[in-house]
Amino acid sequence: MYDFGIKNPTSVDDVKTALGESDDGQFLAGGQTLIPVLKQRLAMPSDLISLARVDGLSGISAGGDSISVKAMTCHAEVAANADIKSAIPALAKLAGGIGDPHVRNRGTIGGSVANNDPAADYPAAVLGLGATVVTSEREIEADNFFTGMFDTALNEGELITEISFPIPEAAGYIKFPNPATRYALVAVMVAKFGNTVRVAVTGAGPCVFRVAEMEQALTASFSPDSIKDGMVPADDLNNDIHASREYRAHLIGVLARRAVAEANG
């Protein structure tokens, strides 16, 4: 990797200062994606601004109708958290299926969401559960957050501090992992809130997306049978050595049905 400077801020304000002092600074959260990228010399930041020692960025708190996960909380903590396991088991399951145990001990929710890898799990949770992304500057609704491949609504220097997940009536998450990376080849999060149903798909397209047709059908009847093949056309999906767009389109239907079945217990 290329050489870089190191900054270890301890408060959110310091983070801003540290970034200002860097030519081309880059936040380092858990590093489970960033460090391999740096090793391959695919990025050349002037400085890494480590978020590990920033106060108040870690932990999980449950409210009455939502659960808030601070940005530097690692996947293993989310997977093991008793409140999440009882209130949103699909979220605990999702976190417990990211990468492998070692990745889950380092990787963080904030890092994953900010990176918005097209095959990452967390974007499906954020979008599928309609979470709110809280940043150093504002609150961003999930529907406005993921703007494209590796792209988000975050401004330059804007830092995710926590993600707030509303507690659904029911939710299910089914992932079809890439056998090599354990990223999602396709994964579907389905969540039901009263009369609203959200369906989010990751891995299949350039960016996590919702499926309006499935949501309408599930709103009418929250049953696996409501999901029909062809509700997501293959045309705009990813087509690579791991899977064709047709297969991905097919998997979305299968996994969505299974996610609904899981949500229905």
Binding site: I6, G31, Q32, I35, P36, K39, A52, P101, H102, R106
Partner: peptide, 27 residues
Amino acid sequence: CDTSQCGACVVTLDGKTVKSCAVFAWE
């Protein structure tokens, strides 16, 4: 490996297993 897949480098960091090839020493 160089992509943090193989796990041969696993050590514990404050009691938790990590891939030491995906953590900086200064961290």
